[in-house]
Design a protein around this nucleic acid. Structure first.
Lengths: 206, 206
DNA sequence: GCTAACTGTGACAGCTGTGTATCACTTAAG
DNA sequence: CTTAAGTGATACACAGCTGTCACAGTTAGC
C-alpha cells in the first residue's frame, strides 16, 4: 500500500498521516473516480458528499482541484502498471497475456477514461497516460504483432482503439447479446474486438 | 438549406431572419462545433470569439447555452440522416454502402462526439443520437450481418464501436503508419477496424 | 435613401465553484 | 488519559459564466 504524507497547502512535511485521514483520502479518490466518470465537471462538493465528507476535508487532503485530478491519474496509471506487470509475469503467449491484462483492468473497475481526458491537456499526449504505461502497452501490442495476432503497426492507433473499446464495453449492460455470446465476459469481448479491429487473422483488402 | 427563424427569448415569430443574421447563426454553430470539441466546457464567450462575434450576439441567436447545444445536436443528427440516405441510395452491397457512409461522415467533418456526450443526459440514451439515426445505423449493421460481413448482434455494441472508432480515427495524425497502409483514407481504416471488431470474416474462439 | 433589423459595447445581477480561514468538537495514538 | 491530529460547520473573498438590458452605430433590403 502507498502511504500518503501530509501535503496540505502543497507542502510535504514528511510526517505520516493518521490512519483515518489516510483512509479518507482513499475514499475521496474512489468517490472522485465514480462521480467524475458520470460527470467530468462535477464539483468538489459532490465528490465530498459521495465520499461522506465535507468539501473542507477534500481541500485539506488535496490542496486544489488540480491536485486531486493529478492524484487520480497517478493512481490510475499505477493500476495500469501493476496490471501490466501481472499480465506478463510468466512467459504466457501474447494473446493470453493480453486477455489477462484486460481482465485485471476490468476487475480494478477503473472508470477507464474519465480523468485521462481531463488531464490530457496538461500531460500533452498519450491521452493522460504516463509514458511508462504507454510504453508498456506498446510492448504488449508489439508482441501480439510478432505472434501474428494483429497486423496494425501504429502504437497510437493500437492504444487508442484498445482504450476506446475498453470504455465502450465497460458501459455495456450486463445482458447485452454480444456480451452473452462472449460468455458474459467483457474482457473476452474486448479482446476479440481489439484483435479483430487491429487486423487479426488475415489482413483484408477492402 | 434550412432557414432559421427569429427565436430570440425562445419565441418563434415566424418572421424570416435577415441574411447576415442567418449567416452568423451558422458561423456560431460551426465555431461551437470546433471549440466544444476541444473543450466541452468552453464558455459562450470563447465560442463567440471563435465565430468573430460577441457573446451578446450568441445570446441573441440562441436564448441559452442549452438552446445552442440542442441546435448543435439537431444539426449533427441531420447530417447523419442525410449521410445515411446518400449511402444507401442505390442498391450497392452493404459493405460498400458502409464505406460510403463513413466517407461522408468524415467529409462533413462532424466533430463526432463533442455535443453528443453533453446532451446524453437529456436525451437519455443512444448517446445523444436521434432515435431515427440510431435506427438507421441499426439497419446498416443488420444488412452487414445478413451479408456475412460481421457477426456481432447487439445494436448498441455495433453503434458504440462504430462511433468510438470514428472518433479515434478522426484524432489520428495524417501520417500515422496505419493510416498510410490504409491508403491515407480514414474511412478505409475505420471500415476495416469496425468490421474486424464486430467479428468480420470468421468468428474466433478465443 | 429610408427604415427596420442587426451588431458591438458596456453594464448589471445572479449563480456556482474555488480556495482560505476560524472555531468547537471528536478521535486516533502514544 | 492526554495530546496532537483530524473533521464539521460556517463564513468570507474571489473569479468565471450566464442571462438580460439599454443605447449607439452599422448594414441589409425594399
Amino acid at each position: 500500500m502507498y502511504h500518503f504524507r501530509v501535503a496540505t497547502a502543497g507542502r510535504d512535511t514528511g510526517r505520516r498521516l493518521r490512519a483515518d485521514a489516510e483512509h479518507n483520502t482513499a475514499r475521496i479518490l474512489a468517490a472522485a473516480e465514480e462521480v467524475l466518470a458520470a460527470d467530468p465537471a462535477a464539483s468538489l462538493e459532490r465528490i465530498g458528499e459521495a465520499a461522506g465528507l465535507t468539501r473542507a476535508t477534500v481541500h485539506r487532503r488535496f490542496a486544489s482541484r488540480r491536485a486531486l485530478l493529478e492524484a487520480l491519474t497517478e493512481q490510475l496509471n499505477q493500476r495500469y502498471l501493476t496490471a501490466l506487470d501481472q499480465s506478463r509475469a510468466d512467459g504466457a503467449p501474447p494473446l493470453v497475456a493480453f486477455r489477462r491484462l484486460t481482465e485485471i483492468v476490468f476487475e480494478l473497475k477503473a472508470g477507464h477514461r474519465f480523468a485521462m481526458e481531463l488531464m490530457s491537456d496538461e500531460t500533452g499526449c498519450h491521452g493522460g497516460l504516463t509514458p511508462e504505461v504507454a510504453a508498456g502497452l506498446e510492448e504488449v501490442f508489439a508482441q501480439l504483432r510478432e505472434a501474428g495476432e494483429i497486423t496494425a503497426t501504429g502504437a497510437d492507433w493500437c492504444r487508442q482503439v484498445y482504450l476506446a473499446l475498453l470504455q465502450e464495453a465497460d458501459q455495456l449492460p450486463e445482458d447485452a447479446t454480444d456480451l452473452v455470446q462472449a460468455g458474459r465476459s467483457k474482457a473476452e469481448l474486448v479482446v476479440r474486438a481489439v484483435v479483430g479491429a487491429l487486423g487479426g487473422h488475415g489482413s483484408r483488402s477492402t
